[in-house]
Amino acid sequence: MTETTPTTPETVLDVQGLTVDIATPDGVVHAVRGIDLAVGRGEILGVVGESGCGKSTTIKGILGLLPPNATVGADKIELAGHGDLLRTPTKKMRHVRGRRIGFVAQNPFGSLNPIYSIERQFHELQKAHGTKVSKKESREIAHAMLDGVGIVNPDRVLDGFAHQLSGGMAQRVVIALATTLSPQLLIADEPTTGLDVTVQAQIMDLISGLVRSEQRSMLLVTHDLGVIAQYAQRVVVMLDGKVVEHGRVEDVMVDPQHEYTRKLISSVPKREELHDVIG
């Protein structure tokens, strides 16, 4: 096993012993069985595993977004500068989401409201967190945010609706929304799944740039080891609701300790093999 202590001095998110039990008509499902995670300041922690391993459930557990039939337990879910999320009352938890933790999901068209204009969605977000801003100020902020995520004509996007955007632009809008209130931590759940391959790299460059430039932190959930290798500093490998391996990305990729990690890495096509196929 590789080193467990965070490589950066300040830990932004410290999760220990997280469990999620989901009550179903057929009995209790132990979706997450005691996992530890720590994200340092300015760090991208990759969480990798196949679908159904409990990655998304872990995120929802941290954010307090699981349905009522799920029970979340943990020794602690410590968010720096705030306290233990598990002991945060529901009403305050709402302000943690959006203001302290930004969230980017896959499929931006599913995330954005299809009926309201993009401008209104920025306004709703600021209104929800008690920021007393006029429509004009809200628009100026939104304009600056869209500008910051590389959108060329922010005015046109603000007046338009989600369905008028391309996939890449819609995900940029989502990222702008997620970072509007300057959260210290970003959680990205498969942020590039469903986007064109060329756009995927642009979006990942954008997110990792935002993290680095502002000394933010990110929990990056993906099944794509290539993305982890390129952007994350440390990685956690999940299987059946447990962490089977964690460590620095270069260590885990070069010298995987767990059988499952080895299989995951060997399932990624290597450059030479691709050359063989293409001929």
């Binding site: 943690v96 499929n107 995330s111 309201y116 967190h129 997620a178």
Partner: peptide, 25 residues
């Protein structure tokens, strides 16, 4: 139950706004 409602909650929008979003949809 849509992803849109989940994203609205993840952005910290209050439940009455989430319900309004769902209703508008």
């Amino acid at each position: 139950n849509s992803q849109q409602a989940q994203f609205a909650r993840a952005m910290g929008l209050p439940e009455r706004t989430v319900l309004r979003y769902a209703f508008v949809e």
